[in-house]
């Protein structure tokens, strides 16, 4: 099996300060990888470099494109990268309002990616939007409401529908459950798990919540000060951490 994403020696510096450095890994189709670490550990910098939002200073991010196999997304042209961004990639922001058009109806939000890839039949677009709203548990009668009228959890689910409607193969998630009530988080986690399983998605999830990665991620990458300090199977890293920092991280979680 060939990897879907191949990251090699990725580095990003902010002047003399390290954003992230020496990051290498392969992600295979259907795998969900969590990236954990404290604020400032470089996990968001890494995610943004992987998703093409930031240009890394060094290294390669090769993605298995449908037509040409592995292509370095760092050096590909911006139109190509954008095309990936609205077809094969999805990006779920922590704050739904960063990933949604707040002045556009729920249906329009979901339909935008379809229209961006030249869907030109209103009826079809609307049917797909209804289908996707249903999959994220938003009832059909809310399709013409704007996200401003939605609760935080609904906004986040709408963002997910908007991202997944074009059937992406790789989803980047930045703290997808951050800022939500615990009960809402659970519902979202359940939803994400189901979608990942049913669509065979690969995902990279950045979070500082170890409970989230335990439930969602197959693999874990632990970052500290811009460096990857430990990687492995999620439950193995959490139950048998090898690096001192991971041990500290795991032992610092409050038990309920």
């Amino acid at each position: 099996m060939t990897p879907l994403l191949q990251v090699e020696n990725l580095a990003k510096y902010y002047g003399a300060r390290i954003g992230c450095t020496d990051v290498s890994f392969d992600l295979y189709p259907g795998e969900v990888m969590g990236i954990v670490g404290e604020s400032g550990s470089g996990k968001s910098t890494l995610l943004n470099c992987l998703a093409g939002h930031l240009k890394p200073d060094h290294g390669a991010v090769r993605f298995a494109t449908r037509s040409d196999g592995l292509r370095d997304t760092v050096t590909m042209s911006e139109p190509e990268r954008r095309m990936l961004g609205r077809t094969d990639w999805a990006f779920v922001h922590q704050h739904a309002r960063d990933g949604l058009r707040m002045n556009v109806s729920a249906g329009g939000n979901v339909g935008e990616r379809l229209m961006a890839v030249n869907a030109r039949h209103y009826g079809d677009i609307r049917d797909q939007a209804i289908d996707w709203l249903g999959r994220v548990e938003i009832t059909q009668d809310r399709i013409d409401d704007r996200p401003t009228a939605f609760s935080g959890g609904m906004q986040q689910r709408l963002q997910i529908a908007r991202n997944l409607v074009t059937g992406p193969r790789l989803v980047f998630m930045d703290e997808p459950t951050g800022g939500l009530d615990v009960s809402v988080q659970a519902r979202l986690l359940d939803l994400l798990r189901g979608l990942v399983r049913d669509m065979g998605l690969s995902a990279i999830i950045v979070t500082h919540d170890l409970a989230v990665v335990r439930l969602l991620a197959d693999r874990l990458m632990v970052m500290k000060d811009g460096h990857v300090v430990e990687t492995g199977l999620t439950d193995q890293v959490l139950d048998d951490p090898q690096h001192g920092y991971t041990q500290l991280l795991v032992s610092s979680v409050l038990q309920v």
């Binding site: 492995g232 193995q236 048998d240 090898q242």
Partner: peptide
């Protein structure tokens, strides 16, 4: 048992 399951390294 956990080692066999891969839960422990």
């Amino acid at each position: 048992m956990r080692m066999i399951y891969g839960n422990y390294l």
